[in-house]
Design a protein around this nucleic acid. Structure first.
Length: 763
DNA sequence: CTACCTACTTAGTAATCCCGCA
DNA sequence: TGCGGGATTACTAAGTAGGTAG
């Protein structure tokens, strides 16, 4: 993207179908065939940047009456209207309406719902049943497709390859059984396998280094002391009675607690989502017990509790600042001992020493488990990791005890417990970002991505070559790598059925990727956090052809890269560079883009101008990485207000112009608003005033534009996770920009390791 | 291999802080 | 001098990826 070109800022506006994504490539830019490297300003333009769009969560939008199947169909060609934006606001219920109006109407349901689900589908529902079925059906699908491939559509030559590479799972079997070509296929398969092995062996890098250099043999620390974790206070019943069927209901504290969790969420979108309600109600009824009068959600009225909550909130707000301060200090005092750990003799901050309080699970997007009760964590759920010699933290809840004490110095966690929502997941307590342990691994991360610079040309040549490979697996790897490199897509691990359906590169579905002749590809899918990625990109001819090929014979909902998963992909990457994985490309592209833009575009100018350059670069990166935020509730009104101010200034300016004309002719200026005659000023003075107002208008217009541009762009994520801080620090040093203008307190602490970088540092 | 387990990074949103301004 | 709103911090969900057992 022409990143820097101010004109193009609105990347978000509607880039639907156009534009090559001129992805900015640093010096090592991709070879020729690559679509317009952004930098050339002239290049067309606005590039299709990933477009931000919808946020998943918005319940409404998902359903909106479109049946799943219908929507899926639509989806094929999403309305090009305004791609960008995410519909619902941050979880605020109301905002959704406003947003959704603009949002492009694609509803998510279509985005994700694979064909399979359709049958039962419908909208709201979706929940569990579908999930359950999905795997099975998907498998079926795969098989069907495979068969199809086997026989017809696919040219023999191609078929041979498909067979050979397949993971050996069902497809291989099928092939053997049914295809006449099977023998050949198998032979080929073997051959290829052998070959691969050989290559791997020979590869200088193939041995994955088990331990990153630097960290001595996997050991992360030698001594570790800390005080464990702090638990949320026990529930304090409020005694406010909710209504059931119009009648007040008695609830035990335990029952009331859960009711309150729900009541309090009345003003979030969650409260309107069927899945959320159902899950909540199911879990709550377990606590109510079989014989409780409360049987139907529809008859529940939580408003009394909600109102109590509002009153409490108000009370809190009304407290004087002294009271608030006292409260804060009290809390601080209590928590102080948990805040710190001593690692190798050095006192370090602990990140999250507070155990997560019970609540209703707030999954993002269409999470099948949203609304489920996240139960209270007890000491007996928690495993503590601590140095051998160190005193084991005393369990803060009398009469209870930790689940287990470990002394594992190959890991960095201080404690963990199993996530009550998903038993298989863990919640860890780690040191804070400012700790040297984290700092070191952060630095290693950037060093690794910097190394990619030395290999990138080779890697690009390599995958470019493989675009025409006869081996479908190779072609898939090549194209996937290309997308990860060029579009900064995430790897795309497989997900379980009990999670929201989102995808990354390796898990892209047929219907997420549309070929638009002659050479554009449109991506439309929900990625991490169910953030929509919507982007149309011009690709090289061979890539286009290859993707068309991957589509052939596969129904929507089927994997585009069916011979690929992140493990395979990363294994391949590791052959090209030690330690290389898909995510390194994101870091690399983000950091190199920043380095590049800063070097090209920083000019001598005011501090403010330099900072503006940085922010533009930052924004560019955020767009590449598709880092989004929801539009603030008040955005609209703020814009209106800005416009009013601008109009007002313009009116003033115009009036002054009239005055100026008169003044030049020596005429009186007339009256002001209050009807009093204005005092005459010399023309020069009026001109000055006009100029001043013009400047002000310009500035406001600029502010307005930036605000609009950034309304859906989150700059923070890339700053925290993707941009090598040394680039920033070095730039600040070279251009005499105080680092505090770019990094806030936490970032300064986090990036302590980068502060002494040489001013000439290049990523 | 694949499936599962484990550890750690990355992500958006909610809550809170804080500052300039009518 | 309250308050609108941006900035920062807190929170925890949701990714990536390595290792390992079967």
């Amino acid at each position: 993207m022409a990143v820097v070109n101010p004109n193009k800022t609105h990347l978000f506006e509607n880039d639907d179908e156009d534009g090559p994504i001129s992805f900015k490539r640093s010096s090592a830019s991709m070879k020729s065939s690559r679509p317009t490297p952004s930098k050339q300003e002239g290049s067309s333009g606005s590039a299709g940047v990933p477009v931000r769009t919808s946020k998943p969560v918005a319940p409404n939008q998902q359903k909106n009456g479109v049946s799943a199947s219908a929507s899926r169909l639509l989806h094929v060609k999403p309305p090009s209207s305004s791609p960008n934006h995410r519909p619902s606001g941050s979880g605020q219920p109301n905002s959704s309406a406003e947003n959704s109006s603009k949002s492009n109407s694609i509803d998510k349901s279509k985005l994700k719902r694979p064909l399979v689900k359709e049958e039962n589908s419908d909208d709201s529902d979706d929940e569990v049943p579908i999930g359950l079925r999905r795997k099975v059906e998907e498998k079926k699908l795969k098989r069907v497709v495979e068969k199809a491939d086997d026989n017809d559509n696919t040219p023999l030559a191609q078929r041979l390859k498909m067979g050979e590479s397949s993971k050996g799972k069902p497809s291989a079997k099928n092939v053997v059984k049914k295809s006449p070509a099977s023998t050949k296929k198998n032979i080929k398969k073997m051959k290829r396998k052998v070959k691969t092995k050989k290559t791997m062996k020979n590869s200088q890098f193939s041995k994955t280094m088990k331990v990153p250099p630097g960290s001595g043999g996997g050991q992360k620390w030698t001594t570790l002391e800390h005080n464990g974790v702090i638990f949320p206070p026990p529930y304090k019943p409020h005694g406010v009675k909710m209504l059931y069927n119009g009648q007040p209901v008695d609830l035990t504290p335990e029952q009331e607690e859960v009711a309150t969790m729900f009541a309090v969420m009345k003003d979030t979108e969650y409260a309107t989502m069927q899945t959320f309600i159902d899950n909540f109600f199911t879990d709550w009824r377990k606590i109510l017990g079989k014989n409780h009068i409360i049987k139907k959600f529809e008859l529940c009225d939580f408003t009394p509790i909600y109102e109590w909550h509002l009153r409490e909130k108000e009370k809190k707000k009304q407290m004087t600042s002294e009271e608030k301060k006292a409260l804060r200090e009290e809390k601080l005092k209590q928590e102080d001992k948990y805040m710190w750990a001593v690692v190798n003799g050095v006192k370090e901050k602990v990140g999250n020493f507070r155990v997560e309080p019970p609540g209703l699970f707030r999954g993002r997007g269409k999470h099948p488990k949203m609304g489920k009760l996240k139960r209270r964590i007890k000491p007996s759920d928690i495993t503590i990791n601590i140095g051998r010699g160190a005193p084991v933290p005393e369990c803060p809840i009398p009469g209870e005890s930790w689940k287990e004490i470990k002394h594992d110095n190959t890991v960095t966690w201080l404690a963990f417990w199993n996530d009550p929502i998903s038993q298989k997941d863990f919640k860890y307590v780690f040191l804070a970002a400012s700790s040297s342990l984290k700092g070191q691994s952060d630095k290693e991360k950037y060093e690794k991505s910097r190394k990619l610079k030395d290999h990138i040309q080779n890697i690009r040549d390599n995958y470019t070559k493989d675009f025409r490979s006869k081996d479908e697996t190779k072609r898939q790897i090549a194209v996937a790598t290309y997308l990860i490199d060029k579009l900064a897509l995430r790897a795309g691990n497989e997900k379980d059925d009990d999670e929201a359906e989102t995808v990354g590169c390796c898990t892209l579905k047929i219907d997420n990727v549309t070929c638009l002749p002659p050479n554009k590809i449109q991506f439309d899918f929900l990625g991490k956090d169910s953030i929509r990625y919507f982007n149309t990109v011009e690709v090289e001819e061979l890539v286009y052809k290859a993707i068309e090929g991957f589509h052939r014979g596969k129904p929507p909902g089927y994997d585009l890269f069916d011979k690929l998963d992140t493990t395979r992909l990363n294994a391949h990457l590791k052959d090209l560079m030690p330690g290389l994985t898909a995510k390194v490309f994101r870091t690399y592209n983000a950091s190199i883009t920043l380095d590049d833009i800063l070097h090209k575009e920083t000019e001598d100018g005011t501090l403010l101008e330099k900072i503006a350059v940085y922010q533009r670069a930052n924004k560019e990166v955020a767009i590449i990485c598709n880092h989004q935020r929801s539009v603030s509730k008040s955005h609209e009104s703020q814009m209106t207000r800005l416009n009013e101010k601008i109009d007002d200034l313009k009116a003033q300016r115009d009036e002054l112009k009239v005055d100026l004309g008169k003044a030049k002719k020596g005429k009186p200026l007339g009256n002001d608003k209050d009807g009093k005659p204005k005092k005459n000023s010399p023309p020069e003075q009026i001109e000055k005033k006009i100029a001043a107002i013009e400047t002000k208008i310009e500035k406001m217009e600029m502010d307005k534009k930036i605000k609009e541009d950034l309304k859906t762009v989150a700059l923070g994520t890339s700053k925290i996770n993707y941009l090598d801080p040394r680039i920033t620090v070095a730039w600040c040093k070279r251009h005499e920009v105080p680092i505090e203008k770019i990094f806030n307190k936490s970032l300064l602490a986090k990036f302590g390791w980068a502060m002494d970088v040489d001013p000439e540092f290049r990523f």
